[in-house]
Design a binder for these strands. Structure first.
Lengths: 161, 161
DNA sequence: ATCTGATAGTTCGACGTCGTACTATTCGAT
DNA sequence: ATCGAATAGTACGACGTCGAACTATCAGAT
């Protein structure tokens, strides 16, 4: 059953018969899946009052283990976000009382970003539903295909890095 | 060889032993690949003076065939972009003399967006280099893996739609 | 023929991100 | 001990996108 990307590739095949469309087909679907899956993910986070970037911060803190504390620099590096963008996210999260900024006793240039009690509760609930949602989106794949996809993505991540 | 996503999953496994991390692993790498591949793609387009959104418009026009004309509505639907965003892109492309707005003889509410001569030349050069770049990013995969990835992504796109 | 609802495109304000410039602080070489 | 380079975080302006409000136009029902 042809999909949207097939249409695009058929058009290119007609217009530019020499083109090798293998890569375009793969990256075309890749981008579409990333976009659509991202929207589905955002909907889940929205039910918990979060945007996906905000969840990423809370999740990074939560999975770092007790006492759920990291510096803004570590967070921005982990999440591949500029420090300026991280400042902005932390401002929002602090306004929502999901994190708090504490003084870093060892470095007065820096801060420690800590999950609040409320932040822990929110991220615990959000991550469970998030995982279930992701699993649902993969449910059309067989266990074998999921394993193959995981292996291939690992190679691909290495390759584009 | 463990990568960045393995670290994240190991952290979650330690903090929340019950969690099924299959989906997180797949979507985690998926997002990273999409992000990094997107940056590599942007660099190629930048060599032709384009942003990736602008290329998308030119490519949609080019692959539609002669006379390389589409309406803004069709473009925004095809590219999954709001009409407001499309207005903005078309303004930029028109300023760069890559497209032009013509009157639609059949509907005075609408316009016809047409590739200029210059626009055709730019997109022809850009698409060739773009395809080569995408193929390069996939070169770490065997032909068999590429075929498997294409098939799996097709299922996945269906699933998340 | 006219009126109602839908559609095409634009404008506007808001948002999140980025890159740059800036201040404060720390680290290292001498 | 001090000076210079590097680092942590923030403030600012620019950019691209979105959703909502708006104008102009079309299509269909009566």
């Amino acid at each position: 059953m042809p999909d949207e990307i097939d249409v695009i590739c058929d058009q290119w095949a007609r217009e530019r018969p020499g083109l090798d469309l293998t890569a375009m087909s793969i990256f075309g679907r890749f981008g579409r899946v990333a976009l659509l899956a991202g929207k589905a993910v955002d909907e889940v986070f929205a039910k918990h009052g979060l945007r996906s970037g905000e969840f990423d911060v809370l999740a990074a803190l939560r999975r770092s283990g007790k006492p759920y504390v990291l510096t803004p620099s570590v967070l921005s590096a982990t999440l591949m976000l500029s420090r300026a963008g991280m400042t902005n996210r932390l401002d929002r999260l602090e306004s929502a009382a999901l994190v708090e900024r504490r003084l870093d006793p060892d470095d007065r240039r820096s801060f420690l970003v800590a999950l609040t009690e409320h932040g822990v509760q929110v991220v615990e609930a959000a991550v469970d539903e998030h995982i279930a949602n992701e699993a649902r989106m993969l449910s059309a794949l067989s266990a074998k295909d999921k394993a193959a996809l995981d292996r291939i993505l690992r190679v691909l991540l290495q390759s584009v890095s």
